[in-house]
Design a binder for these strands. Sequence first.
DNA 1: AAGGTGACTAACA
DNA 2: ATGTTAGCCACCT
Length: 111
Amino acid sequence: MAFGERVVRIIKEIPYGRVMSYGQVAAIAGTPRAAIIVGQILKNGTIKYDLPWQRVINSKGFISIVNMQFPPELQAELLKTEGIEVKKFDGQFWVDLQKYGWLPEEISGKI
DNA sequence: AAGGTGACTAACA
DNA sequence: ATGTTAGCCACCT
């Protein structure tokens, strides 16, 4: 199975109201340092694979989107809708990874 | 078809 | 403490 396929699968498994960082997704998909590829896949494959793109943020918990189709404000809104607290730090949206972060092992144990 | 390019990160200077 | 660099490798052109 290809890396990209695993990434898509993992992202789709992120539960409602939880988030994961690019790095975590990459690591679980089998390549810890390929975080940026996860970003690529999100950027280009969100529509194609119908991904919950708003549930993926960077390792610091910030929204690191640079996409006009899916602006940070929208992502923040979607997350709030899911019950996630989104705070604002210096013009950047932030969510508590400790609190809302999620790892597949918690429920599936596989992947 | 081959190569440039990241919605990233952690490690250095 | 802030800025740069080097891994990473699938996707798009």
